[in-house]
Design a protein around this nucleic acid. Structure first.
Lengths: 335, 335
DNA sequence: TTGTATGCGTTATCAC
DNA sequence: GTGATAACGCATACAA
């Protein structure tokens, strides 16, 4: 049913190897036979079997991308960047989402290895998990690039400077007169959440302020959690004056809930997020993160590895985060 | 370097076929050898090669999903639904985005066929394009399900009732007293855009109102276009009282631009979108579309085809669209 | 310039 | 129960 190079060999009276060579534009074939081969291939409706090609050539022309959440714009832009570069290389990408679940991440990585992807780009869970599967991956000799760093694992990494982002955000709030600040942490498996939080604590401390335990919310993830948190904040008797959210999605959830509860932002409550997502009407003060660029960069270095253009040591690159002041933080006069 | 069943055959002194059978839990092997094989595989660090398996078994365990825009929540939710069902079947998905470009769609489909995916889910461009590649795909005998219908092409399809969505939205605006209504059409390759627009025109006409040409914007796609349109609307001397946007992303762009220009929504301008995207603070009146459910349904019927559970005729399912009234449309008293 | 032979890692069809 | 052996579709080294 499926036409193979054997069929077109038979049809043209040439050998399989000639067909293969001519089809792949290898040198050493007359223009005449090349055309003959191409014509026959066209006529028979030949579609190269990349599976067979992969088995024989040790390269599948596909890479795997493992993110944490398909519905978060943060990962959408990373994905977009990766896709773009992959496309430029004639590659195709398997997209997997771990959904912040350890076992899912493990399963996806193993599935990708079994599918013999030429390389892997992974946004790994970094807190409260084990990393055996990464060391195993390393031994399996499939090139991979990480969005985040894992202790003792040598590979190319990209990071965003989350600590500094947390610091900027806290400094900003402080400079606007806020001291009763609420902090909504992201997923407990997120190192970004941890870093931003410790930056928050430390920056507060350096200004002689102690963070209030009651004002920190753990493990928020997604808009639903954001709304739940917002509801709680709105109902607090000694409400904070500002809240730092792990990301814009959560911030948007908080804003929705808080407004539904009859509060105004920033008049009654100042709010800051992270990621600077574009599709949003609210003038949210946030921290911009170059996700699209990071996606492209991740893919570039992966392809450098795959195509062996670079065999030198592993590189570790950190992207800056940058506070974008808009109108969701109010200047406080009377502390 | 890579350990194969041949290696584990050598290690155990058994035959390759025995290894293969035992590993795949085929019946007819003693518990003893099965355990021996498993142990050896574990010890040698055997990782099955799905490429080789695919070549031999004619099934790759992967499907392709071709959407139009990775960064649009609409497709994110479809993707999420598809991924979920694929995962349940032990399948992996290639994600491709056509970016509303005809040639990209063609290339992606062909790439997927070359990769011998077991099936394809496609959100095709439906206007101002040719469909030869779909008829070709049909002849290549790879199962596929479409989000949209193509004339003369028999396959399973899902659709959203865009005409009715357009009607609902127009009726609503009319009932709120609006007659000077602006319509922002989506991509010119979008049939949804076309249907909604014709519903708009017809509904208006049935109320004895003629649509104003100056109030229709063509080919908007993404937030940037939405903002550009919003800017233009804000600057119009005889500004419309309401605007219907192809989707929420565009609507959000319009709202941003219009507010930057100093207008209030809905006081100065009423706005309606489509899709009901969740991550959004603005109380946008919009049309909800069951994207996540559709994603799951698309995948279900694809797997029905792949696993031959259903061999009867092709099915065509239409999901309803439902107006969600929030606060972006104002009641007009003096027409 | 073209043809032959072999291998890639599995699965599958047979015998034994 | 288990073991040869032949596909699967292509690439490639080597001959011719």
């Amino acid at each position: 049913m499926n036409v193979t190079i054997a069929d077109i060999a038979k049809a043209t009276g040439l050998a399989k190897s000639t067909i293969s060579g001519a089809l792949n534009n290898k040198s050493g074939f007359s223009e005449k036979t090349r055309r003959r081969v191409l014509a026959a291939a066209e006529e028979l409706g030949y579609v190269p079997n990349e599976i067979a090609r992969g088995l024989s050539s040790k390269s599948t022309g596909s890479i795997g991308l493992i993110i944490k959440d398909i519905t978060n714009p943060f990962y959408n832009h990373i994905t977009k960047g990766v896709q773009e570069i992959a496309g430029e290389h004639g590659y195709t990408v398997f997209l997997c989402s771990s959904g912040e679940e350890h076992q899912a991440e493990i399963n996806h990585i193993q599935a990708m290895v079994r599918k013999r992807v030429d390389g892997l780009i992974i946004a790994p869970l970094l807190e409260e998990v084990t990393f055996d599967h990464f060391f195993e991956l390393k031994e399996q000799n499939v090139p991979f690039v990480l969005l985040g760093k894992i202790q003792g694992l040598s590979c190319d990494t990209y990071e965003f400077d989350d600590y500094d982002g947390g610091r900027q955000v806290t400094e900003h709030l402080l400079s606007m007169g806020h001291t009763r600040i609420c902090f909504v942490r992201g997923p407990k498996t997120s190192k970004a959440a941890k870093l931003r939080y410790s930056a928050f604590i430390n920056t507060l401390k350096s200004h002689g302020i102690e963070a209030d335990e009651r004002y920190v919310f753990q493990n928020a993830n997604g808009i639903a959690d954001g709304m739940a948190v917002g509801k709680q904040i709105a109902a607090m008797p000694d409400r904070p004056t500002a809240v730092i959210c792990f990301d814009d999605v959560i911030a948007i959830g908080v804003i929705k809930a808080v407004m539904e509860a009859g509060l105004q932002v920033p008049e009654d409550l100042s709010i800051i997020g992270f990621d600077d997502i574009e599709v949003n009407t609210f003038p949210l003060t946030t921290v911009s993160i170059p996700t699209y660029e990071a996606g492209k960069a991740l893919a570039w270095t992966l392809f450098d590895r795959i195509l062996q253009r670079r065999t030198s040591g592993f590189q570790h690159i950190t992207f800056e985060q940058k506070l974008i002041e808009r109108a969701s933080v109010r200047q406080l006069y009377n502390k």
